[in-house]
Each structure stands twice: as C-alpha cells, then as structure tokens.
C-alpha cells in the first residue's frame, strides 16, 4: 500500500509536512475558481452600480445624493464581514494550526482596511451634503473608525516580529480581541442615539427601502462580496507562491554553502 509510508511517520513529522505542504494543490484549485469568481464580481458589481447610478430612482428627500448608498453600504457590510473572516482565519490558526490560515489573515487585513476606508470616505461624502457635516463622533462612526484602526493594527503587528510565526500569533490574538467591536458597530445605532440612522434592511421586518432601490443595492453588495473574495484569493495565491520562493531560496543557500 502506498499510504503506509506517510501514515507511519511520527506525529511531529506530519505536522511539519502539513505546514510546508506542497502548495500545488491549493494553487491549482484556486487558479480554477478565481477567474469565475472575479468575472461574477465584475458583472454583478457593474450592473448594480450602473443601475444605482443612472437608472434607480432618486430619493424623495435626499434626491440624487442617495446614490452614494450603492457604494457606501456594500463597503460597510464588507468591512464588517471582512473582519469576521479575519477572525475566523485567526481562530483556525490558533486552534487547528491550519497552514493557510496565517497567510489568509495577513492577506485579508489590507483588503478589509481598504473597504473600511471606502466606507468611511464615502460616508463622509454623503454626510456633508445631507447631514451638514463631514464627520461627527457618534457611536456608529466612531466604532467603524475603531474597526479601521484594528485592521491597521493587524497589518502592522504581523510584520513587527523577526519570527513570522510570532507575528502571526500576535495578529491572530488582536483579530480575536477586536471581534467585540462587530456587535458594537451593528447595534451602535440602537444602543445609543446617533446622527447615523438605524438599519433599513433587517432580518425581522420589511425593508424600509423601496424595491427599486433595494435591487441595485443587493446586486452591488453581492458583486462586492465576490470581489472581496477574489481579491483575497488572488493575494493568498501570491503569498503561497512567495512562501515557496522563500523556502526554495533558503534551501538553495543551505545546500550551496
């Protein structure tokens, strides 16, 4: 039986092999699914955003400024979902020591930070003409700014150690600690009085948004989610290849010396 050799290895050895596993299988699989994910993302997001920008009706009181919603709201959702996926990757790194989890966390954080930045800036661009202020320190805006700094903190922390493993571990702990911010963001508009309005789309009631606006928003959000996944997957592929390059270069130096 061909499997006997590998199964008879001691446990410590399999863990090592697991950690530096041949990346070929991940790269082959992800290389197959990345193009369709990217294509779906581009199609859905384009349709949603063009629909929202040119064809969806204006709002009865906000007029055309409401169109900022079609970029702001998906960015806001993905800022939170991105952090949730960062926390999941961190948990699977700490608990199951999954070999890809650390790299995934490192690659999720910058994409999440970028989407959070989009959310903050478009929110500001929406707030100025509607509310009359670029920024107010209410609970919603402050908690999303904290989310942005959590992402930035993670980006800095994983690169702050000479030993990458220690950086991964510190980053994973930060990511899990920061998870408490997610319910605070979600419920900030209910727990405190804020300038930001409560959610229009809830699990419990009818959406307080006309269907003619809900459809383009749903498409933009779905396209954004596929886009987020495609960006993370592409970066993860690059990171896996770069890790293999480092390992091979090190091996060459060792055997050459």
């Amino acid at each position: 039986m061909g499997a006997v050799n590998t199964t008879s290895l001691p446990a410590g050895n399999t863990r090592n092999l697991h950690r530096f596993a041949n990346p070929g299988q991940f790269l082959r699989l992800s290389g197959k699914i990345l193009p369709p994910i990217a294509a779906i993302s581009i199609i859905l997001a384009s349709v949603g955003l063009i629909w929202g920008l040119f064809f969806a009706p204006s709002d009865w009181q906000q007029h055309d400024a409401v169109r900022i919603m079609y970029v702001h709201v998906p960015a806001a959702w993905l800022a939170s979902f991105g952090y949730f996926s960062l926390a999941l990757a961190s948990a699977s790194s700490l608990i199951w020591r999954h070999p890809l989890a650390d790299l995934a966390a490192v690659e999720i954080a910058p994409v999440g930070a970028a989407f959070t930045a989009i959310c903050l800036v478009t929110g500001s661009l929406w707030g100025k003409p509607m509310w009359g202020a670029w920024w107010v320190w209410d609970a919603r805006m402050t908690s999303v700014l904290v989310l942005f700094f959590l992402y930035l903190g993670h980006i800095a922390l994983v690169r702050a150690f000479d030993d990458p493993q220690r950086g991964y571990r510190a980053g994973a702990i930060l990511a899990l600690v920061g998870v408490v911010n997610l319910p605070i963001i979600k419920f900030s508009v209910e727990w405190w009085n804020t300038l930001h309005q409560p959610a229009s789309i809830t699990l419990t009631g009818a959406p307080t948004m006309a269907p003619s606006m809900l459809w383009p928003l749903a498409l933009a959000a779905l396209g954004g989610s596929f886009g987020f996944s495609a960006l993370v997957l592409a970066r993860l592929r690059a990171a896996v290849m770069e890790r293999r390059i480092r390992a091979l270069t090190l091996a060459q130096i060792r055997t050459g010396a």
């Binding site: 709002d59 009865w60 919603m69 509607m130 509310w131 229009s200 307080t208 948004m209 006309a210 606006m213």
Partner: peptide
C-alpha cells in the same frame, strides 16, 4: 452654533412618497 439634519432609515422614490 451648528445644526445638522438627521434623516430616517426610509428610502423611497418621490412618487411613492406622494
């Protein structure tokens, strides 16, 4: 010294509001 407008969570086209 500063007045900000707060809008609610309802979004609808003008004809629906009418």
């Amino acid at each position: 010294q500063e007045v900000l407008a707060k809008h609610d969570e309802n979004y609808m086209p003008p004809d629906m509001a009418d």
